[in-house]
Design a protein around this nucleic acid. Structure first.
Lengths: 335, 335
DNA sequence: CTGTTAGCGCCTTCAG
DNA sequence: CTGAAGGCGCTAACAG
C-alpha cells in the first residue's frame, strides 16, 4: 500500500483496486455499466480508504452543483425558523446542502447574499423576500438561478412560490367566534399595508357577510406587539362579544388588557389570535389561534426547486397555497 | 464583442481586456503585481461582463474552500436560532458561506451531517453538540476539519469552544433576590443531569452562602415547561419569599400558578427566570430574568474558527466564556 | 465492460 | 510586469 494523502482521491482508489479512474467513477455514478465483481472490489476499496467524492470537483466537471440558498429576513423569528426547518429537512432528503443567508431585514444585505449565491453557482434559491422590490429577484433569475418565493405569490411565468392562505385563515377565525355565539366581532389588525393583515381582514368580512345580524368592526394597532394589544384593550370604549387579533402577540396583549379591566375571557369576551406562536400556548389563558403549516412552506419550496432543477425541460411554475387550521384553546367557546 | 457564455469565465475577461488569464487572476488576487493602468482596464471589463470568480473552481486549485458548517439540534428553538444569527453574521463578514444542518435532535442525523460536511470539504464546523458522545466529534477532527463547540466546554487540546457561564448566572439571579429582601429562596430546577441546571444551582448556592441567615431549597420539576412550573406552584405547601426558576418557561408557569392561588408577584413572592426568552417580556407580569449573550456565542465560534483556519500554525485552542446579565423587570423588587 | 483522453474554471510556478 | 503551461479531483465522451 503506497502512502496516499488524506483525504483519499479517486485515483488512490483506482490504484489500490487495480482499475482505472473512470471505472471507479462509473461504479459510483453508473453501476450498471460495470461488472458486478469489479464493482464489488472497487466498493470494498472505497470503504477501506474511506473515500468520498469531492463534490466541488464533481460539480465543476458535471455542471451541477449541490447547494441551494435560503434567504430569510430573520432566523430568530419563529416563522422563518420554521421555514428553515422544513427547507433543511427537504434539502437533506435530496442530498443538497442549504446555505443560510440571514439578511437581518437589510435589503442591501439581501442583495449581497443574492450575489454571493450567484457567485457560488448555487443551483437554486428559496427566499422569503424583503420588501416589495421585485428587481432584486429578477436579477437572480436572469443569471439563470431558479427561485422559489415563500409567503408571497409570484406571477407564474416568473417562478414557483408557496404561500399560506390568509383569507381563509381570517374566515376560520371569525367563523369560529360566530359559531361560539358572538355577534359583534372586533378585528384588531396591523396596517393594511401588510398584505397578510389585509387578507385576514378580508376573510373576516367574508365570515360576517354569511351570517345574519353579525357585525364587524376594526381597529388598527400601531404595532403588532403585546404592548400594542394591551393598549387597544385599555382604550376600548364599548366591548364587543369577541376579538380577532391578526397576530398572537396582539392577542396576548388584548387578553392581558381585558383581564386587567376585570373582563373575563372567554366568558365576557372571546379572543382568537393568529399564528400559533409559542406564546399562544403559554399565555395565562391558552389562546385559541390559527395555525399555519409553515414547515410545509419551507419543505415544499425546496421540493419545487428540485423539480425545476431536475426536470427543467418540462417544469411548469406553480403557486402552492396551504390552508391554515383553527386551534381551539381556552380563550374562546363560552363555558 | 464575441458571444461568450453566461456566466462569464476568467478567460472571457482576459480576451475582452486583451490580456492573459493569469493577469486577470493577478488583478483579483495580487493587485500589487500588476500595472495600475492594465489593472483598471481589466477591472472595468470585469464589471462590464459581470464576471465573478467561481469559488468551487478556485477552491479546487487553491485547496481552500469557503463554506463552514453549523450543526444544531433545532433551529426553531430560539436559543439555537440566536446562535445561528450570530454565526451567520460573522460568516458573512468573513466572506464564508454557512451551511445549515438541523439534526432535529437525532444523533444519527447529526453524524450524517458531519460526514456530509467532511465530503464537501467544509473548512470548519461550528456545532452545538447533541448528547455526550464525543466520538462523533473526534471523527470530524481526525479528518482534519477544525471544530468549535458551542454551549459546551471542550478540553483545550481538542479544540476551541464557547460557552455561557451558568454558575455566574445562577449567582446573579439569587443575589438579586436577596438584594430585594428575600431570605428564603426556592430553586425550581430541571434535572441535574442537565449541566446547565446543575451549574445554575451551584451559582445559587454560592449566592446563599455569602449571605447570613439566607436559606435555599430546591425542587426538581419533571420538565422545563410552563405546565410543569404551574404544577410546582400548585403543589407548594409552604411559600418561600422568592423563587428562582432555572428557565423562563418554568418561571412563567410558576407565576401563573401562584397568581391562581391568590399570591401576589412580586409583593408576596418574587420570581426570577433564566434565558430571557420572548415569553419573559410577554408574561402577565414581565419577568425578571437572566439574559445570555447567545448571539455572541455564534459570532465568536465562527471567529475562533477563522483564526484556526487562517493562522493554523500559531493558533492555540481556547475556551471563551461569556457572562450573563440580570434583566430586572416586574416580577422582582418589592414595590 | 474497461481504459484513455480531454477538459470543467481557476490559480500558480516559471520563463520571458 | 505579463504570458504560457500544468494541475487541482472529477466526469464524460470515445475507443478498444
Amino acid at each position: 500500500m503506497t502512502t496516499s494523502r488524506l483525504p483519499a482521491r479517486i485515483q488512490d482508489v483506482a490504484a489500490a483496486a487495480g482499475v482505472s479512474v473512470s471505472t471507479v467513477s462509473n461504479v459510483l455514478n453508473r453501476p450498471e455499466r460495470v461488472n458486478a465483481r469489479t464493482a464489488d472490489r472497487v466498493r470494498s476499496v472505497i470503504a477501506a480508504l474511506d473515500y468520498v467524492p469531492h463534490p466541488g470537483a464533481a460539480g465543476l466537471r458535471s455542471g451541477r452543483a449541490s447547494s441551494i440558498g435560503l434567504v430569510l429576513p430573520d432566523i430568530v423569528n419563529s416563522f422563518y425558523a420554521r421555514i428553515a426547518r422544513g427547507a433543511a429537512e427537504a434539502a437533506y432528503e435530496h442530498g443538497f446542502s442549504l446555505v443560510l443567508c440571514d439578511s437581518g431585514d437589510h435589503p442591501d444585505r439581501e442583495r449581497e447574499y443574492f450575489d454571493m449565491l450567484a457567485e457560488q453557482r448555487a443551483v437554486g434559491v428559496v427566499v422569503a423576500p424583503l420588501g416589495a422590490d421585485p428587481d432584486r429577484l429578477t436579477r437572480l433569475r436572469r443569471r439563470g438561478i431558479p427561485l422559489v418565493l415563500t409567503d408571497r405569490k409570484m406571477p407564474p411565468q416568473e417562478g414557483c412560490s408557496v404561500a399560506v392562505d390568509d383569507v381563509t385563515g381570517g374566515r376560520l377565525a371569525v367563523e369560529h367566534l360566530l359559531d361560539s355565539g358572538a355577534r359583534h366581532v372586533l378585528v384588531v389588525n396591523g396596517g393594511h399595508g401588510i398584505r397578510q393583515c389585509a387578507d385576514r381582514y378580508q376573510g373576516a368580512r367574508q365570515a360576517i357577510r354569511s351570517r345574519r345580524g353579525a357585525r364587524l368592526d376594526q381597529v388598527v394597532a400601531g404595532q403588532m406587539t403585546v404592548a400594542a394589544g394591551a393598549a387597544v384593550a385599555r382604550d376600548l370604549s364599548t366591548l364587543p362579544d369577541a376579538v380577532f387579533c391578526t397576530n398572537d402577540f396582539l392577542a396576548v396583549g388584548m387578553c392581558q388588557g381585558l383581564t386587567q379591566r376585570g373582563v373575563r375571557i372567554p366568558g365576557d369576551v372571546q379572543v382568537v389570535g393568529y399564528g400559533d406562536l409559542d406564546v399562544a400556548t403559554l399565555a395565562a389563558t391558552p389562546l385559541t389561534t390559527v395555525r399555519q403549516p409553515v414547515e410545509d412552506l419551507g419543505r415544499t419550496a425546496v421540493q419545487l426547486l428540485m423539480d425545476e432543477i431536475e426536470a427543467s425541460d418540462e417544469h411548469v411554475h406553480e403557486t402552492r397555497v396551504f390552508g391554515p387550521r383553527l386551534v381551539p384553546r381556552d380563550s374562546t367557546g363560552v363555558a
